[in-house]
Design a binder for these strands. Structure first.
Length: 363
RNA sequence: CCAGUGGUGGCCGAACGGUUAGGCGAUGGUCUGUAAAACCAUUUUGAGCAGGUUCGACUCCUGCCCACUGGA
């Protein structure tokens, strides 16, 4: 299980965008996050099962975790570029309209778990509804109760399949409850009472202010910590989040941000660096004119393969000309930054110097 | 030299006798279980030159300049 602070990059469709598994290994990635919904649509979970599962299919020797499709209830459910709503939720499950061709697909908790077992990641996640923000209390309660019923169904199907296939996949249950203290507590109590291998916190980083996110997490953490189970924080991963949440006992988090920012030209770095614009904490835009002739590495102190070899001017050029290599070099850097920073946090927690480290970084 | 076609913002490129599209680029910003090599904002009126017709010209007319194509 994931018992030490672990940052999990996202590779929705079976690949961390722009990187090979060799590159992931080289920068110390232990595990990445794939998506059930996307892989079910393409190439299909049965196809992947026939190839011997996701590990063999992708040639990835490390660990894998799959999301349940629960987040797509949220992300496909809201209007996106006026494309309309692509999901319909009922007690039994969720009807998705494929974002690829509009074809209808029905996900139940059982179906999500079956697909995830076919994909065969090390860790899988119970089917839930990621409640939009803001939500009324009435809606949040209704969605929460449904998610709890889905959690029980997910768990039952999971145990059945583990037994039937003689496997030992690990299942995370998901705590929801929007931003209501009593609902969050109620959810933590319920999910922790079930026989899940790990507990995930969902329904955060959905557009709420950071303070609300911290609150929601604080409502549920005491209960979850008592279980001694690994705690995954779903969809969270700004640099400051690593300090805020690993410091409190969260054991893993996944986030698209570092890879997505990389493709948008933003690179991560520590603040207080003389050669960088520190207005925006921990990030700068490589396409900015000020890097056009800059002959030092993205982050002068970084040990990543990109920074060991290439300078800002070259990467600036690659982005201006939209050369694919740019996305790759930048993604390597950003993921390394997250992994390395997480490693510093791990070490500091062991040596009891976490508070000093956090102060050094965040002030 | 003759003929034809055409000269529109940093670049490409429409329409139009009256309020000039759009794209690219540039600049700034955003992104948290990836419908994302994405998205948003700004880039506040610019017609080869000189005249003319008209209430009004980027649009019609004349001359000149330039480019491309074809022909001597």
């Amino acid at each position: 299980m994931l018992l030490e602070p672990t940052f999990i990059p996202v590779g929705t469709q079976g690949a961390v965008k722009s990187l090979s598994v060799e590159e992931l290994e080289a920068i110390g990635v232990e595990i990445f996050f794939c998506n059930t919904y996307h892989l079910y649509l393409r190439p299909g979970d049965k196809a992947i099962k026939n190839f011997g599962g996701l590990h063999k299919f992708t040639r990835w020797k490390g660990q894998l975790i799959t999301d349940s499709g629960g987040f797509q209830v949220f992300s496909l459910g809201k209007d996106h570029n006026g494309a309309g709503k692509l999901v319909k939720i009922s007690e039994d499950g969720v009807e998705f309209k494929s974002h690829l061709d509009g074809s209808p697909h029905f996900f139940t908790p059982e179906k999500s778990i079956q697909i995830q077992h076919n994909l065969g990641a090390n860790y899988i996640i119970a089917f839930d509804e990621c409640t939009p923000y803001p939500a009324t209390k009435a809606y949040a309660l209704k969605a929460l109760d449904r998610t709890h019923r889905w959690a029980v169904r997910s768990l039952k199907e999971h145990q059945l399949l583990n037994k039937k296939n003689n496997q030992d996949l690990k299942l995370y249950g998901v705590v929801q409850g929007s931003y209501f203290k009593d609902l969050r507590e109620q959810s933590a109590d319920f999910i922790c009472s079930q026989d899940f291998d790990g507990i995930a916190i969902g329904g955060v980083s959905v557009g709420e202010p950071k303070e609300k996110m911290k609150q929601a997490i604080s409502y549920v953490l005491p209960t979850i910590l008592k279980t001694k189970k690994p705690i995954h924080l779903l969809g969270v991963g700004e640099v400051t989040d690593l300090f805020d949440f690993f410091g409190q006992g969260i054991t893993s988090m996944d986030c698209t941000l570092p890879t997505r920012m990389a493709r948008g030209g933003q690179f991560l770095h520590r603040t207080g660096n003389q050669t960088l614009d520190t207005r925006n904490k921990f990030k700068s835009q490589i396409m900015s004119q000020k890097y056009k002739l800059d002959s030092i590495a993205l982050d002068e102190n970084c040990q990543c393969p990109t920074c060991q070899k290439y300078d800002r001017a070259y990467i600036h050029h690659l982005f201006k000309t939209q050369e694919l290599l740019g996305y790759r070099l930048m993604t390597v850097h950003n993921i390394y930054f997250m992994i390395h920073t997480t490693q510093l946090i791990r070490d500091s927690l062991k040596s009891d110097t976490f508070n000093k480290l956090k102060h050094d970084w965040l002030g």
